[in-house]
Structure formats: structure tokens, C-alpha cells
């Protein structure tokens, strides 16, 4: 017994180092597996507060660009509205069909990173604004990521620039689907994998979200094809996609909730059983 105590006292520095290092290592390994509740994330009171203070100073510097982006988006939406084929007739609204499918919340980006291989965004909306895990995050140009952790007033989103991210996407002109991943290299390009060789892939084609995931609505823009090559197996294409969004410069985002999501996922679960 005496010897054990002596051993502990003699090696106390090393033992403490070992303890702290293994705690850190455990947290690291845990953070590398997707869909686990994390203790260490920036959706909390302290980090949210600090980033919020910084943001309130910072946001004045790019007010003009933000206004331009908003004006551009308004123009696009107005064009869409004037060019819709179906004329809306207010007398025929049946309340049982008029239920909305998606709920949109606007949020400010408090922190955005793109230099690591596991990038996250911190947003200033949380549980109090009924934001939950697996809501989609987009801008007027295209998709940004998926909500990962939420606290009372803040949330973190898994960016599409994250090697863990995997999003259902399709080629706009056809209906061939694939999954969107990131290789961790450039913040301008992402990769679309598992696209069947039957798909007529052309450089310059648009990539959109496919409607399969129930996180994003169908048809939200992602980017354009810049190059593609056959997979090693020869059955599928690997496509380089240039993002519409400049992921290095994001100010305001929209968080999208699919209201039918629980219904869809419970249905899918019961089918799988």
C-alpha cells in the first residue's frame, strides 16, 4: 500500500498529464463521430455572449454589401412572383390544405470557420426560437449546413465544409441523385459522390438539393459542376462542385424547419422495421 502511494506521489505530474490528456483525447474522438451529443461546443452562454458582442461591433462594417444582397434577393423573388403561371385565387383557400410545409427563421452568423476540416457555424437562434437538431440552414444563394447542437439562445450548425457532412443532392436537369461530401481541401469546392454512370453529366450543370432528406426542401441551389471523373469501381461519377455561396463570407442565414419531418421520419422508421 505504502509503495502504491509512493508511486502515485512520485509520478504525480505524469499521472495528471495522462488524466488530462485522455480527457482531451476522449472529447476529440467523440467529436469525430457524427450525431452524438457533445459537451464542448460553442452554443453556450459564454461563447455566444462573447461572439455576440463582437458581432454587434463587426456588423456595421458590411452593411452596404448586406443591403445589396437583400436587394438582389428581393429582385429575384419579385421576378419569380410575377412569372408564376398559377394565379392565386383567394376565394379558394381551403384551410385544411393551406397548412404551411416549411417554417423559416432568420439568424445571424456569430462564428464561421472554413480553415479546419471540421467546420461549424455558431448562430444566434436556439431552443427559445424552437430551433432543433437537423434543421436546414441556407442563404439566398444556397445551402450552408445542418443544425447540430442547440442551447437556449444559440445553436451550432455543421457546415457543408465538414468532412462529416453528407447531404442528399441531385443534378438539376435530370433526377440522378448523389451524396454531397467535402474532402477538406478548398472552401470553394465540394464533391458529389455516388452519381450513377447513366447520368448525363455536363460541366456547368447546376446541382440542387434532392427532396429525399426531409431536412432541406427540394430544389435549393448548391453549385455548378466544374469537372467530373469516374470512380475507381467505374460504376459512379465523382463530381467537383463549385459552390454558389462564398462560404468565407456569410452574414445572415435562414433556418428551415420541415414541419412534416417527424411524420416522415416515423413513417420511414416503421417501414424499415
Amino acid at each position: 500500500m505504502q509503495q502504491i502511494f509512493n508511486f502515485v506521489i512520485r509520478n504525480k505530474t505524469f499521472l495528471l498529464f495522462l488524466l488530462l490528456f485522455s480527457i482531451a483525447l476522449a472529447l476529440t474522438i467523440q467529436s469525430h463521430s457524427y450525431h452524438r451529443s457533445k459537451f464542448i461546443n460553442s452554443a453556450n452562454f459564454l461563447t455566444g455572449g462573447v461572439y455576440g458582442t463582437m458581432n454587434s461591433v463587426d456588423q456595421y462594417f458590411d452593411l452596404k454589401t448586406k443591403n445589396d444582397i437583400l436587394a438582389e434577393e428581393n429582385q429575384r423573388l419579385r421576378e419569380q412572383l410575377l412569372n408564376t403561371n398559377t394565379t392565386l385565387d383567394s376565394t379558394y383557400i381551403d384551410s385544411s390544405y393551406a397548412k404551411e410545409k416549411y417554417r423559416v427563421t432568420i439568424a445571424d452568423v456569430y462564428k464561421n470557420s472554413y480553415s479546419s476540416v471540421n467546420n461549424y457555424l455558431t448562430l444566434n437562434k436556439g431552443k427559445n426560437d424552437s430551433i432543433k437538431r437537423d434543421f436546414g440552414v441556407i442563404t439566398s444563394n444556397g445551402i450552408i449546413g445542418i443544425i447540430d447542437n442547440t442551447s437556449k439562445n444559440y445553436s451550432t450548425a455543421l457546415s457543408i465544409l465538414n468532412v462529416k457532412s453528407k447531404i442528399n443532392a441531385k443534378i438539376k436537369s435530370t433526377n440522378h441523385i448523389g451524396s454531397l461530401t467535402w474532402d477538406g481541401k478548398s472552401p470553394i469546392y465540394v464533391q458529389l459522390e455516388d452519381v450513377s454512370q447513366f447520368a448525363p453529366v455536363k460541366v456547368g450543370d447546376t446541382i440542387q438539393t434532392g427532396g429525399e432528406s426531409s431536412i432541406f426542401p427540394k430544389g435549393i441551389g448548391i453549385g455548378t459542376i466544374t469537372s467530373f471523373e469516374s470512380d475507381i469501381s467505374g460504376d459512379t461519377y465523382k463530381i467537383q462542385v463549385k459552390l454558389f455561396n462564398d462560404m468565407t463570407n456569410i452574414g445572415t442565414v435562414y433556418i428551415i424547419e420541415n414541419i412534416d419531418r417527424t411524420q416522415i421520419s416515423s413513417l420511414q422508421n416503421s417501414t424499415n422495421e
Binding site: 498529464f17 472529447l27 457533445k38 461546443n41 453556450n44 451550432t156
Partner: peptide
């Protein structure tokens, strides 16, 4: 630093090793 940059425990591990 990890808390602020959403990086799990990588900075903690590196900093403890450096200190050791």
C-alpha cells in the same frame, strides 16, 4: 479555445502535452 472553435478536445490535448 476548443469551446470557442468547436473542435472537440484537440487544443486541450496539444496544450497539456506542451505544458508537460
Amino acid at each position: 479555445v476548443d469551446l470557442f472553435s468547436d473542435s472537440g478536445g484537440v487544443h486541450a490535448a496539444a496544450a497539456v502535452s506542451l505544458a508537460y
